[in-house]
Amino acid sequence: MRQNASDLVRRARAGERVTITVAGRPAAVLGPVGPRARHGWDDMASVFQQPTGPGWAADRLPTLLKQGVGCRRVRPTPARRTSPTSPLRRH
């Protein structure tokens, strides 16, 4: 199997189903991927358009805070001079 792995994958990609055996007994079947294995946005859009459950935000908040999502450092507004001779003022 190790020496022929690339060949077996090519055969499976071409549509052949290959039975892999261990000690003469079937252990796995290698075959082509079905046409519905990959989904495009059009297939999945309706999933994301569903309303969330009533406790979703409360359940999700601790995880988001751990990940730092929605958090950013707020820098203080720097002091500026309106003219070279005027005192510093905060805006």
Rank of each mutant, 00 (worst) to 15 (best):
C71F: 11
C71K: 14
G15T: 01
G70V: 01
P35D: 09
V22E: 11
R10P: 00
R72A: 09
D59S: 14
T52L: 12
A14V: 13
G55R: 12
G34K: 04
V33N: 05
T82R: 10
R25G: 00
R17Y: 07
P78G: 04
A5I: 11
P76D: 01
G24V: 01
P32L: 04
H39K: 14
S83W: 03
G68E: 03
R90I: 13
A58F: 00
T19N: 06
R73C: 09
A5Y: 06
R10M: 15
R11Q: 14
R25I: 03
V29G: 07
M1K: 10
P87Y: 02
S6V: 11
T77M: 12
A27T: 08
A23Q: 11
V9Q: 09
Q67W: 05
V69G: 00
Q49K: 11
T21L: 06
R72L: 03
A37D: 12
L61D: 00
Q67S: 10
R10K: 14
T19E: 09
L30F: 03
R13C: 02
G31M: 04
R13I: 06
T82W: 06
R60C: 03
R11K: 14
A45T: 08
T19P: 00
R11T: 04
A27V: 08
V74A: 08
R75P: 01
V69I: 15
V74N: 02
T21E: 14
D42N: 05
A58S: 05
G15P: 00
P32D: 07
W41H: 10
S6Q: 15
D43Q: 11
R2H: 09
T21S: 12
L61Y: 04
H39N: 10
R2T: 13
R10V: 07
R17T: 07
R10S: 11
G40V: 03
V18K: 00
S86C: 04
T21N: 09
M44K: 09
P54V: 06
I20M: 14
V69C: 03
V9D: 08
R60S: 03
R10G: 05
R75T: 12
A23E: 10
A14R: 13
P78C: 06
V47A: 12
A37R: 12
S46G: 14
D43F: 07
Q67E: 13
P35E: 15
L65M: 13
R17K: 06
H91T: 11
E16W: 00
Q49T: 01
N4R: 14
